[in-house]
Design a protein around this nucleic acid. Structure first.
Lengths: 173, 173
DNA sequence: TATGGTAGGTCAAAGAAAGTCAGTAGACCA
DNA sequence: TGGTCTACTGACTTTCTTTGACCTACCATA
């Protein structure tokens, strides 16, 4: 396994359900894993982004620290994604992270997440068009899927005739 | 026998009934068979396609890998749809009917059906490319989504750890 | 209020591994 | 024997990881 993956899961095991916040020393962690301190920054930059659902705070100097906070930016997540976050184009990795967040917040099932991921995979979109247009296409497809989920949720709320897409919260307090 | 055939059967013997998933190193395999690494890609591209019921996942860079997953049992509904029924291109109406059938047979939930319909809607695919290419794109996206469902169902059967996509059969014998 | 130590941030470069593609060679068929 | 399809290769590209040199911020205290 890659060092980055090891560090990632190390940090994630510190972030439990009850403890959505962890503070660490960059140099200590680097020494513990026997790597360059900047490796820690790399892990944070690639695996603990806001799209992944994390916020990083830090401080330099004596008594410095890095704090990682898992955030659930609730409110109307779908509106935010469709209206602001996604925009005209989006890459596969980025889009995958957004889907992962919806899954983690139990706004979609893991089946729905997988369907969405596969629908926007570069595999699925591998027709001979320029990459920029693929990203535009991906954004459209993703927004269309999210819109359909959001609409279903609304209808479920309104009439209770049709089942909403919100999955049952298995094991989540 | 052609080298490609040898590599193909080599990989297929690794993919047993119990282990439908194999991970390998492209360079190692190429060295083992004494061929160019790109030969491996050729074999994967010609013999382990979605239509054949396989999914390829890979990662570049340090610690990179190629994973081959056999997703689809022969003789299944999904096998028929992906391998024969859908083909290279498909229109929106036709695709919608197929999705409706899956929904009626309780192979997918109504939410999943809606997500899939929206993903292949002409709305979602309205980027400036020729219509013929849109139909090709729709076919690819649809196959990719069906593949992910089929895979999930298989994983659900195999381990019962992950929930399968097959919805509960409400009122359907 | 300088100033030196402490600790995190940035960035570019090197390394690792897979992907792409165009071109060549071989095989099969009319 | 010419044409088309399949197999194969190598050069080049892209992506991901890791490191180290250098930069910046904060704190204590003289």
């Amino acid at each position: 396994m890659r060092l980055s993956d090891t560090i990632e899961s190390f940090i994630k095991t510190m972030l439990t359900q009850e403890e959505p916040e962890v503070e660490l020393k960059r140099n200590e962690l680097a020494e513990y894993f026997g790597c360059a301190p900047s490796q820690i920054n790399y892990v944070l930059a690639t695996r603990f982004t806001i799209d992944d659902g994390y916020v990083i705070e830090s401080r330099r100097g004596g008594g410095g620290y890095i704090r990682i906070v898992r955030v659930i930016q609730s409110g109307s997540k779908f509106r935010y994604l469709i209206g602001e976050r996604i925009g005209e184009t989006i890459g596969e990795v980025e889009a995958g992270k957004l889907i992962g967040q919806l899954e983690a917040e139990n706004l979609i099932t893991s089946c729905e997440a997988d369907i969405m991921r596969s629908a926007i995979s570069s595999q699925a979109l591998s027709v001979p068009i320029p990459d920029s247009m693929k990203d535009a296409l991906r954004a459209r497809v993703l927004k269309a899927m999210l819109t359909s989920i959001a609409r279903k949720n609304r209808e479920g709320q309104a009439s209770a005739k049709k089942a909403p897409c919100i999955p049952s919260q298995n094991g989540v307090s």
